[in-house]
Simulated assay, not measured.
Amino acid sequence: MSLGIMEEDELAEYFRLQYGERLLQLLQKFPNIEEQSGSSIRLLEKKKEAKIMHTAMEQKKETFRRRMETLNLRWEELGTKEAQLKAHIQKFEQFIQENDQKRIRALKKANKERELKRQRVRELAKVKQEMGALRLQHQRLSTRMQEFSVFNKYLEKVVEHSEFEEIHEVISRYKTLISMHHDLMQSAQEGQEKIERAKARLARYMEEKDDEILQHNNELARLQMRFDRARSDVIVWESRWAHIQNTAAKKTLLLGTIKMAALNLFQIVSKQLKETAAVSLEDTHKQLDMIQQFIQDLSDIWTEVRRKEQQQVRV
């Protein structure tokens, strides 16, 4: 409704501007009444035309207003129909959605039923297979019973000609003997295993002792080598000791000779000095010191004599 009113106002403003400007232009074209009094008739005619035009404009405005009202009514009807159509579309979409959900649930249910049916079929096939296997087993057992019927007859004859009264007593006796045989075999096997373990321990012990004997032999060989080296070293050192003893004897003899020579020389020096020094006969070092001092004194005297002789020769 507001849109129609706005368009009507704009249209009225348009007519006012268009026709108002034309009226002003027409009025401006008319000459002044005071100056042209003869044109009053034309002015009245023009005013009449303007009034007619104004009336026509008002009629057009009224027509336009009515048309706008009609358009507004149609616009409102269209809005109502649009709202109804939207509601109808929403209901239709909801209906479609509900149908889709129902269809999905129906599909799920159908799939579940098909899967359940397939499972039942598989179970039925498995049961049939088991039934077939049981029938085959029953046939095999029946065949074996027919085959073992000979042994049953044989056991009946055994019972007739033995101390047993029933077949199950014979079977119990047989089971007892089998159990005893099994126990004896187990005991024999355990004894054999003990013997094998003892043999293994003995083998390990012998191997360990062989290793120890080998180690002792190696140690004995090493000690024998050390003993042989020691014996050879003893021979070498004995020869060296004999050489040292011989050398020591020679050195001792030479030392005795040197001491005797030093003593003789000391006695000669003492005679030359004409004095008796308190020196032991065994103190060779002091004797040599006195001999050295005597020789030094003689050297000094000889040097002094030579110097004086040279002075006399010069004079």
Rank of each mutant, 00 (worst) to 15 (best):
K209N: 03
T252L: 15
R222G: 04
M68W: 01
D183S: 06
D210N: 02
R144H: 05
T55H: 13
T176P: 00
I291K: 05
L255Y: 14
I89W: 12
M290K: 05
A198R: 03
L124N: 13
R231E: 12
W75T: 10
E304F: 00
Q129I: 08
I195S: 00
A133S: 10
S299A: 03
E169S: 12
Q84C: 06
E169L: 05
S162Q: 06
D233I: 10
Q36R: 13
W75F: 13
L17C: 02
I301E: 01
K251V: 07
K102C: 08
N217I: 02
V315Q: 12
R22A: 13
L134S: 07
E156D: 07
Q36T: 12
E163N: 06
K157S: 04
K175Q: 10
I167H: 01
E219W: 01
E49S: 11
F227C: 02
D289S: 06
E238T: 15
L263T: 02
L254M: 09
E212C: 00
N246F: 07
K126F: 07
K271W: 09
I268L: 11
G132D: 10
M145Q: 07
R120W: 07
E8Y: 02
A230Q: 13
A203W: 05
R201W: 01
H88A: 12
I96R: 10
F148T: 01
R118K: 13
F64M: 10
L23R: 02
N111R: 15
I195V: 08
P31S: 11
E98Q: 14
L17N: 05
R103C: 05
R135E: 13
Q90E: 15
V315G: 09
K286Y: 02
V159Q: 04
A200D: 02
E160S: 09
R140D: 06
E219M: 03
H243T: 15
A56R: 11
S232K: 14
K29G: 04
E193T: 01
R122N: 14
D289P: 01
